[in-house]
Design a protein around this nucleic acid. Structure first.
Lengths: 219, 219
DNA sequence: GCGTAATCTAGAACGAGTTTCAGTATTCAA
DNA sequence: TTGAATACTGAAACTCGTTCTAGATTACGC
């Protein structure tokens, strides 16, 4: 959404969904910024992502960086969106058909988890930002939420075509809550990898079993 | 844990579990600090809790404030611990016997939620700190976690005496994940009160029904 | 091509969390 | 009671996110 500076000039931020079409050089700048952010975050986590450094590394003036991403948190949430898009692509390319829905959900999340274990600092930086985000970032955080929800939903019913029920959406929400929160505890050293797995498996029990006519009522 | 300044003097922070016994005046200072924090947080949330202001309002030098609480996040997490202790007392004073465990859990959490709705800014400040906390605060965050877990466990089985099973602990963990995370979404305006309730009810389905010999295997 | 509005750059400046330091007050053991 | 160790004070200094300014550059409708 367009903001206004003190002297009344118009101002837009170049987030994903902005109405501005972005010239080629602008698109390139945006990419450079995200790449630099990713690099710095992967090296030293949240604290290592310093706005001046990001600006320098992406060869952009500090003011320009702030025009593209209005705060450090916006920047990192956008980075997360970016990374998730890539991850989503990878997951779709290697689908896990054949398993029952519940297992598929667990499998998907654990695979994502393994991805994050490979870049713990990057993960820490992005997750810290997500959690620290306040109302002013809710649009962007919502974007990330949508992508996550989508991934879990795709794992839940074989065919992504059917409209999800309210019940399913409720379950997915609780799953993403658990997912985020337990990831954070792992990053902060308050939970082991095994515990994260266990949490995921526990919450996955909320995913309804496929109601084949075969076995019902078994304990 | 004792830290060391540049000139090698010893230094301790006066957190809850510190080994230092705390003289009376020190205990009083600590209280003043926590009270000031609560007051500022209740007025204007996380951003309104400014270390200089807290120091001034509690009539303590800035350096002293930092000796008691080594960072703003530590300070707010300690405040949360403090508030939770009070809340726990209130809840225990008005127990909700008679309901089945699942309902009791839901009831307890919703009651806590209503408490937080009464002081949204304070809640925001404390929760932001909890989520932003990094490894250096994990001990304190764990403390808060223990208290929460305890509250939910007490709601789960009528008699608080029996040792919780591993299964129960797993469920409680997922419940607290959901609780924290959905509280945050509410604070950030990304979820309505109704949605928080729904999330709690959804996750509470993980609480096992009391296995009376009467009804088993019913859908 | 030309003029103008929008964008970008370099750098200073501001604000709040955090650290440091010199000096004063308190505590506590002998 | 006294003297050393520890804690507290007041104030300055440092860092990093963020904002602001003045001047260059670029994009774009005519």
């Amino acid at each position: 959404m367009p903001r206004t500076t003190t002297d009344g000039r118009k101002m837009t931020t170049y987030t994903k969904a902005a109405g501005t079409p972005l010239t080629e050089r602008q698109e390139a700048r945006r990419r450079r910024i995200l790449r630099a952010t990713t690099r710095l975050a992967a090296q030293g986590g949240y604290d290592a992502v310093q706005m001046r450094e990001v600006a320098e590394m992406s060869e952009v003036a500090l003011g320009t960086l702030y025009r593209y991403f209005p705060s450090k948190v916006h920047l990192l949430v956008a980075t997360m969106y970016d990374q998730l898009e890539q991850l989503g692509g990878q997951l779709r390319r290697k689908p896990n058909k054949g398993l029952p829905p519940r297992e598929r959900v667990v499998d998907t999340l654990l695979r994502a988890f393994r991805g994050m274990q490979r870049e713990p600092h990057l993960t820490e930086a992005m997750m810290r930002a997500m959690q620290f985000a306040d109302r002013s970032v809710s649009a962007e955080v919502d974007g990330v939420g949508r992508i996550t929800t989508q991934m879990i939903l795709e794992a839940m019913h074989e065919d992504a075509s059917t409209e999800p029920s309210a019940e399913e959406l409720a379950v997915v929400r609780v799953i993403t809550h658990t997912w985020h929160s337990s990831l954070i505890s792992w990053l902060n050293g308050r939970a082991s990898i095994a515990q994260v797995k266990l949490d995921i498996e526990t919450v996955a029990r909320l995913v309804p079993e496929p109601e084949d006519e075969a076995d019902a009522g078994t304990s």
